[in-house]
Amino acid sequence: MDKPSEHNFVELLEKHQNIVHKVCRLYTNNYDAHNDLFQEITIQLWKAFPKFRGDSKFTTWMYRVGLNTAITLYRKSKRRIKTQEFDAIQFKISAEEYDSTEEEQLKLMYQAVHQLNDIEKALVFLYLEDKDYREISETLGISEVNARVKMNRVKKKLKTILNP
């Protein structure tokens, strides 16, 4: 085992672990599932680390591996997720900082995002992370135009979920 490389990897991951946490937040709804996915993404990142040549940013590379693991490689465990559990996790975080209308709006938005399919969630995730359409298209393997069109559709879909 190449120790300096392992050390280097853990140092980078520790610094940027929020990216992995955020992917987990979007694709899981409870504490155990969050940790399961976190672990699987970490393993996949580590396995792919020798291929990381540094020609892209480590964080850009993390987004790709993280999303690929969540969408494609990760098999959800039998611990079925309940939306209520998800809400509880999300809103412990922000409830104190917002007024009740905003809080309610956010709660509904998180619930709506959670109803999207895996690919739509990926689009929303990259959008929330302020990624441009070039990066979104490169991560998912679709054209920039299609990423834009799909994102608009997702926005409409969210609107429909919020105002049925």
């Binding site: 392992e6 853990v10 672990q17 672990q39 699987e40 970490t42 393993i43 396995k47 494609t72 098999r75």
Partner: peptide
Amino acid sequence: FEKKSSSDLYAMLHKKSSSL
């Protein structure tokens, strides 16, 4: 988020993958 320490992360590297 609940921050993972470097020792948590080291431990994870040696866990078995359950990928598809």
